[in-house]
Design a protein around this nucleic acid. Structure first.
Length: 883
DNA sequence: TAGGGAGCGA
DNA sequence: ACGTCGCTCCCTAC
């Protein structure tokens, strides 16, 4: 498609009637199918944006403006106070969507015009005239038929049909075809027929056909009115009786093409979108598919493809020239490294490696290097103190696999992007280049994939100083260098090592769960007399609510929930055995699936190698995938049996688990400075019993298990921004009782309440929250005037400093533990991290030393006003090591 | 193939 | 409307 900045031989302007198109979208798309997690309806936004993309794609305009109605149409109201009266009130969820559309347009850098007292179509009519005078083709996208009067050579109206992406091109010929009148006659046509939506009645009994016939006979409306007396029949009679109405309609439906505008055609030149803002916005709107369409339509910075234009031709390096090349880049400050590392069948491969420093880019074909050159490169990757990569972790693993065992990274542009914008879903190099370099990466030519490696290295080299400066501005340089980079290396080693699994035991367990699941399914079928897919919520709803006529549960988007809590509740009411078997089946299939997932990822070396993601959790936590080892069951007896299959591997003789005790509550005590909470931790008492005693006004010894459970739920809930309603829901108690509990809590721990409200207010005024180590999370939604979004952001603001500080502490602990074990020359290594717990594989004779190290280094990872207690256990399996 | 429902963990 | 941060599975509609 055409590029916004390149000169065009055929300039054209796309003029969009914002309100009419948004309104059409609102009614064209079912709102229930377009709503975000926060409950925001987005059907109008979605429809508008897809229409916009379609039009941009099809018309490739060089200029664009969107006009919105604001205030009231003064000129028409003056003449006809009833103008647009009686129109259905705009639905409440429409207005907010117009704001969102304006947000999208701002991110796309599309100029928006909204004038008090002037309707959008008058603005468009004026712009169409200006365009014509400037020799610019105009395309008007409008759902308002009045626009048809503007059609002429050089001015086309795009009128939406049914779906939003089907735009009919109304040229002069198309208008004649459809209405039997010329565009110039269209106003008269509309005046005769009338417009219900605008409360402008026409001549009774005169429809499009008659109006067209009269207009062709008499030329225009004046001609008709002059000859009104000659027109026969009922229609003629009606016309004579309604001449005033028709004249009024004609005056009112004229679009003004001479309103004063704040911009001209030259100001409407298309500009590069703000991709960063657009990404954030589309994330919020949950427009994943549309986001990709934007890229397809707008191109990833096509036309300003700085990277493509400027990336220097790489120097091809061979064994003979390698040393010289390494010396050349060694003399520079930072050196960017990129590879084509990939994993195939659990084995890392890497064929090409590119280095970039300043404007010099060199490309090395690793498969072509002789042994001395390989050694030289290996030494370089080991010793150079300023290597920067993008998403270094998988590349390091591949390089280690390929024999470059000392390869390391000192900086990572992906981590930098993450620290700057932790809420973003992905941090592709291409995205960073678009955002910070003003142009996208060139596509890799199919015939020369290695050229892409060179371009990536070059982009990384350009990005490092830019991102380093931003990191500084965000106060995140320390976190990058002291925490994230060292952790990246440790994670790479943990992943490479993996954790050993007793395969036979895992298989046996899977069979056992499968059998139990099948038995439960059979029992469930028997209870209702037929088979049904127990995994289908839809079919379950039919059974429960239609067939068995049970009371309806809480609504979901597509029906009524069949989740475990609802099923348990239904069982309490109906005691229908089907429910019990269904719940048991759910339970067992879940466990069976977990086992299958583990079996699938169990590598030939008898170990499972998860992948930790360091740049996805907005709070600073890690996540784990393929498989996720951070959600292995632990709460039920059967679930814990899965933990028994994780065992020490060859050479090791035990596993050690070490976890922080109530780290989030301790951080809460520290950050709030609440004296009661602090003294509870200092006294080393059972926290929940202590809090229970305070809240219920009894001795600690008299706190019942029920009281303890309630207080525990509340304490943790507070960290997440729990409401009285939510607490009531969870504890199955009344909202009043829940509120009483919370009041009692805050009466005793007042500093906690103060802290929580301060956190939110500070975040609101500064724009971000901060962990103890200064890791920020930006929450612009705190300013939102949409309550639901704002409250969600407020809860995130409550939680982020606490969850994030815990994450920082754990990362620091991992670095300290790893360092201490190496320092002591121990062979034991950490294998897994589960947020507040690490799992270490113990070598013989190292149990005591590692236990000491882990205790000391974890407890010492932060200094709080309360102690950081660490529980340690050793055993023959993950389960056995639990304490 | 993408999104929803469900469920596991901290 | 009503508790944060994640990942994975299956089903279903497209």
């Amino acid at each position: 498609m055409s590029t916004p900045t390149s000169p065009q031989t055929d300039p054209s302007i796309l003029l969009i009637d914002g309100h009419s198109m948004a309104y059409r979208a609102y009614h064209a798309l079912p709102p229930e199918k377009f709503s975000t997690a926060t409950g925001q309806t987005t059907n109008a936004v979605f429809g508008f944006v897809s229409m916009l993309l379609t039009a941009l794609d099809a018309e490739a305009p060089t200029h664009i403006v969107v006009a919105f109605d604001r205030g009231r149409p003064q000129f028409r109201l003056d003449q006809h106070p009833g103008y647009k009266a009686g129109r259905a009130k705009t639905p409440p969820d429409f207005h907010g969507q117009v704001e969102l559309i304006e947000d999208v347009l701002a991110a796309l850098r599309i100029p928006v015009v909204g004038l008090e007292a002037v309707e959008a179509d008058d603005v468009l009519a004026t712009l169409a005239r200006l365009a014509e005078e400037a020799g610019v083709e105009a395309r008007i996208a409008s759902g308002d038929k009045d626009a048809f009067q503007l059609v002429r050579p050089g001015v086309t109206v795009l009128y939406p049909r049914k779906g939003m992406t089907d735009l009919v091109r109304m040229t002069p010929e198309a208008v004649e075809e459809k209405y039997g009148v010329t565009p110039a006659q269209y106003r008269g046509h509309a005046a005769l027929v009338g417009e219900k939506a605008d409360n402008l009645p026409g001549v009774p009994g005169v429809g499009p056909k008659t109006a067209a016939k009269w207009l062709t006979t008499y030329g225009d409306l004046d001609g008709i009115l002059e000859n009104a007396d000659d027109i026969k029949g009922k229609a003629g009679e009606n016309l004579r009786a309604h001449v005033d109405d028709v004249a009024r309609n004609y005056r009112l439906n004229r679009l003004l093409d001479d309103v004063e505008l704040p911009l001209g055609i030259a100001d409407a030149v298309r500009r590069e979108p703000d991709r960063e803002a657009l990404g954030t916005l589309f994330d919020q709107l949950e427009f994943a598919v549309l986001g990709r369409r934007v890229e397809a339509v707008l191109g990833a910075g096509e036309g300003t493809d700085v990277a493509a234009a400027e990336v220097p031709e790489p120097v091809r390096v061979d064994s003979g020239s390698l040393r010289h090349e390494l010396d050349a880049v060694r003399a520079t400050d930072w050196v960017a490294v990129a590879t084509d590392a990939a994993y195939v069948l659990g084995q890392g491969t890497v064929d090409h490696l590119a280095l970039a420093a300043g404007d010099r880019v060199s490309l090395i074909d690793l498969t072509d290097l002789d042994a001395p050159a390989t050694d030289a490169l290996s030494a370089f990757l080991t010793d150079h103190p300023r290597l920067v990569a993008h998403d270094a972790k998988p590349q390091l693993k591949a390089l280690w696999d390929a024999g470059f065992t000392g390869a390391h990274a000192d900086w990572d542009t992906q981590l930098a992007g993450y620290l700057i914008e932790p809420d973003k879903r992905s941090h592709d190099l291409g995205d960073l280049a678009s955002t910070h370099l003003g142009g996208a990466l060139p596509d890799a030519p199919d015939d020369a994939p290695a050229a892409d490696v060179a371009a990536r290295a070059w982009a990384i080299a350009q990005l490092r100083p830019v991102l380093a400066e931003q990191l500084d501005a965000h106060g995140a340089t320390g976190i990058m260098e002291q925490i994230e980079v060292p952790v990246l290396d440790i994670l790479a080693r943990m992943e490479t090592r993996g954790i050993a699994v007793d395969r036979d035991r895992l298989d046996a367990l899977g069979g056992e769960f499968r059998e139990q699941a099948d038995a439960s399914a059979q029992a469930a079928y028997a209870a209702i007399g037929h088979e049904v897919n127990l995994g289908s919520p839809k079919q379950l709803q039919e059974v429960l609510f239609d067939e068995l006529d049970m009371p309806k549960t809480k609504k979901t988007k597509t029906g009524y929930t069949t989740d475990a809590a609802a099923l348990a509740d239904l069982f309490a009411r109906t005691e229908h055995p089907f429910l019990q078997h269904l719940l048991a089946h759910r339970d067992r299939t879940k466990l069976s699936q977990t086992v299958v997932g583990l079996e699938k990822t169990l590598a030939d070396d008898g170990r499972i190698h998860t992948t930790y993601l360091q740049t996805v959790a907005a709070t600073g936590r890690l996540s784990s995938k393929d498989p996720n080892l951070q959600n292995i069951p632990v709460r039920t007896e059967a679930g814990r049996r899965i933990r028994e299959v994780f065992v020490p591997g060859a050479g090791a003789d035990a596993l050690l688990t070490a976890d922080y005790s109530q780290i989030e509550m301790r951080i809460m005590a520290h950050l709030s400075g609440d004296p009661s909470l602090i003294s509870a931790f200092l006294a080393g008492e059972d926290l929940h019993a202590f809090v229970g005693a305070q809240v219920f006004g009894v001795q600690t010894a008299d706190v019942t298990p029920e009281m303890r459970a309630k207080v525990k739920a509340m304490s943790y809930g507070l960290v997440y921004g729990l409401s009285a309603y939510g607490l009531a829901q969870q504890l199955a108690i009344g909202v009043d009782e829940a509120r009483g509990l919370m009041d009692g809590y805050f009466a005793r721990f007042g500093a906690v309440r103060d802290y929580l409200s301060t956190v939110v207010e500070e975040a609101r005024s500064r724009g971000y929250t901060e962990t103890m180590d200064g890791r920020r999370r930006y929450l612009p939604a705190l300013q939102s005037d949409r309550r639901q979004m704002r409250e969600m952001a407020e809860r995130a603001a409550l939680n982020a400093p606490i969850q994030g500080s815990a994450a920082d502490i754990m990362k620091t602990a991992m670095i300290r533990v790893d360092g201490a074990m190496r320092e002591a020359d121990l062979g034991s290594r950490a294998l897994l991290q589960v947020h507040d717990e690490i799992i270490v594989e113990l070598m013989p004779d190292e149990h005591e030393a590692v236990t000491d190290i882990v205790r000391r280094e974890m407890a010492g990872a932060a200094s709080l006003t309360v102690p950081l207690d660490v529980n340690v256990g050793i055993g023959s399996s993950w389960q056995d090591a639990a304490h």
